[in-house]
C-alpha cells in the first residue's frame, strides 16, 4: 500500500480514518496541533496494525509552515494521499457580533484548506498520482440560521474542491469531496443528541475510505444524507427562511 497524510489527525473522525487506513496496511503521517496526542495515535496504529507512522506539527493558521508537510517525507517515499480533516465549529452566536470569531471560522474551515489543498495539488501533481480528500459537510448545502457561518465556509470549500477537481481532471490526481452528516464527535458533543441520525466516527471512517477507494468524486456519509439534503434543498427559500433549523 501507500502512505497517507492526515491533516488535523486529532479529531475523532480523523482518528477513525487513520485506523481504517492502517487496517488496510497503509502507512500514516499524522499532522495536527497536539503532537503529544498524535504520538499516542501513532503508537497505537503501529502496535495494532504493524504499519509505519510519523507525526508532524500542524497549525491551521501558521500558513507559512504548511509547506513543511510536503517537504519532510518520512521513510524517503512520496505520499500517495492527503486527507484534510481539521475543523472549527465556532459559535454562530458569537460570530454574529464578533468578526474575530467569524474570521476564525472562515480561516480554519476555508482559508487554511485553500493553503493545504493547493500545496497538496502541486505536490501530487508533480508526481501525477494520488488522491486529495477534504471533509466538507452537509451544512454547506443550505444556509441555516443556527450555523450559517460554519456552513458558508464549508460551502466555499465545496466550490473550491469542484474547481480543483476540474483543474486536476486530466492528471492522475483525484480530488474527493466528502459531505459529512452529523457524526458523534467532539464537535457535536453536547450540541446534538445521540440518535439514529448521528453516526459513529468508526462507521463514517469506513465509508470515507471505501468511497475514496471506489473512485467517486463526491459522496455523502452516511449515504442517507443525500435524501435528507435533497428534501431540504427543495424547500422554497421564501418558506425556508422562516424555518427554525
Amino acid at each position: 500500500m501507500g502512505s497517507v497524510l492526515i491533516v488535523g489527525a486529532t479529531s475523532g473522525i480523523a482518528r477513525a480514518i487513520a485506523v481504517s487506513f492502517a487496517r488496510r496496511k497503509w502507512d500514516l503521517v499524522l499532522a495536527g496541533r497536539d503532537t503529544a496526542d498524535l504520538k499516542c495515535l501513532a503508537a497505537d496504529l503501529a502496535i495494532r496494525f504493524g504499519v509505519r507512522t510519523a507525526v508532524r506539527a500542524f497549525e491551521a493558521d501558521a500558513y507559512e509552515s504548511h509547506h513543511l508537510l510536503f517537504e519532510d517525507e518520512p521513510w524517503g517515499v512520496s505520499l500517495t494521499g492527503v486527507i484534510v480533516c481539521h475543523g472549527y465549529m465556532g459559535s454562530q452566536n458569537e460570530a454574529e457580533s464578533s468578526i474575530k470569531e467569524a474570521r476564525k471560522v472562515i480561516d480554519v474551515n476555508y482559508s487554511s484548506y485553500v493553503s493545504v489543498l493547493h500545496l497538496a495539488a502541486s505536490y501530487l501533481g508533480e508526481r501525477d498520482a494520488g488522491f486529495i480528500c477534504a471533509l466538507a459537510s452537509v451544512a454547506a448545502l443550505r444556509g441555516r440560521q443556527s450555523n450559517y457561518m460554519y456552513g458558508s465556509a464549508k460551502a466555499a470549500l465545496v466550490t473550491f474542491l469542484q474547481g480543483l477537481r476540474s483543474r486536476m481532471a486530466r492528471s492522475q490526481v483525484r480530488v474527493v469531496t466528502v459531505l459529512l452528516g452529523v457524526v458523534d464527535t467532539k464537535m457535536t458533543y453536547g450540541v446534538v443528541r445521540p440518535g439514529p441520525l448521528v453516526a459513529t466516527p468508526e462507521r463514517v471512517a469506513e465509508r470515507v475510505v471505501r468511497g475514496i477507494q471506489s473512485g467517486r468524486d463526491v459522496f455523502y456519509v452516511p449515504g442517507f444524507w443525500y435524501w435528507i439534503m435533497l428534501g431540504i434543498r427543495m424547500i422554497p427559500e421564501r418558506v425556508f427562511k422562516y424555518m427554525r433549523l
Binding site: T10, R15, A36, D37, K186
Partner: peptide, 10 residues
C-alpha cells in the same frame, strides 16, 4: 450529572 468526554490527556 454533567458528563464530559475528553479525547486526549490535554
Amino acid at each position: 450529572s454533567e458528563i464530559y468526554r475528553p479525547e486526549s490527556a490535554t
